[in-house]
Design a protein around this nucleic acid. Structure first.
Lengths: 187, 187
DNA sequence: TCAAAAGTAGACAGGTCAGTCTACTTGCAG
DNA sequence: CTGCAAGTAGACTGACCTGTCTACTTTTGA
């Protein structure tokens, strides 16, 4: 029960606490009472900031940790960097797998507000790959972006089921091979 | 409420019904009452066959649909066939993604009986790839098996979040590229 | 300074869930 | 034909869940 700041900061604090709990134990297994408790607020306050648990879930997903995509370097370097960033992402905090996958698996209702958020994020990632590949003048940016995206999902999904970094390392290796084939020299 | 056969067959019937419900709507959102209802049995009968819901989940996972790995052809053909089999696997039934991923995401408790089953299955798949690659005299079977395995996970995971076959097709393309690099000629 | 906004404390309604229990019926094997 | 296992029907317990509510206190900004 740590006293938290008020207003917008408190809302973000609640969302962050919710994110870690939902992620670690599952959305359906964590009640709003527990989120409120751990955030050091009452349920009344939680419902003051969020109209429903569904909205809290959506906000929590937004607050979930995410892989940072490199913003500097050549396009190909940036793509490689995205895969390498996965390793550090997975080692920090108790990793259970991609939050998007975990949340998707529990949110079977496709109209859930969090689901729409997930779909938007995934499209964004695929487009990011595609733009980088266009910059690198790859032969078929859209097709290759899809391949890299699947690979990325695989690396994250494998972590959901296993607990080691080997899959991520393997995915990075494959990504570099693909880039070498389609974009010529690496760095 | 379809009258079902008795004994062992009834147990399998309940497990199959449970599998489809858990898969489609999530383990935590489907109660044993609903499983019993849809299976056309009473809860009393369900608990006669399964000591607890956890055990029912484990049995349901065992009864879940799975990708069939080719048993004929050259090692490389069989690996390609495994990826191609994914497409038909994903088109049949309402696909929501890899059952292992979905179940794993909900079963946060690592000591859950179903989790151990999942880990055994995944190891089996990876070893299957490795054995095929050894037969095909690949340079580094273990490393390449890991890469193919990640790719396979990616294809399945992408389906958990999206609903199209594009990721699977992309994964198959990547797999063939990897095999071409590491095992020489394809067929 | 002082009213409105934001917060605390905790009870409560109405629902669902896992799992148990009693009493009764059906089918099968010896 | 008869005894037992397997099944039906459905009530019940205790726990937990979301969301609401009343009454009170603290903070903040105009």
């Amino acid at each position: 029960m740590i006293r938290a700041p008020r207003g917008r900061q408190l809302k973000e604090h609640i969302a962050a606490v919710a994110a870690s709990l939902f992620y670690a134990e599952g959305i359906n297994r964590v009640g709003v009472d527990r989120v409120a408790d751990k955030a050091g607020v009452t349920k009344r306050t939680l419902y003051h900031h969020f109209p429903s648990k569904d909205e809290l879930v959506a906000e929590a997903l937004r607050a979930a940790p995410n892989v940072l995509f490199p913003i500097e370097g050549s396009p190909v370097d940036r793509i490689c960097g995205a895969f390498e960033a996965l390793v550090s992402f997975l080692t920090e905090t108790a990793y259970r797998g991609c939050p998007y996958i975990i949340f998707s698996a529990e949110l079977t209702d496709r109209s859930h507000p969090a689901r729409q958020l997930i779909e938007r994020q995934l499209l964004k990632r695929r487009k990011w790959f595609e733009t980088r590949l266009q910059e690198a003048e790859a032969r078929d940016p859209a097709a290759l972006a899809e391949e890299l995206d699947v690979l990325f999902d695989g690396a994250l999904a494998a972590g959901t089921k296993r607990g080691t970094l080997e899959p991520v390392i393997a995915a990075t290796r494959t990504a570099k091979r693909l880039l070498q084939i389609e974009c010529g020299s690496l760095r």
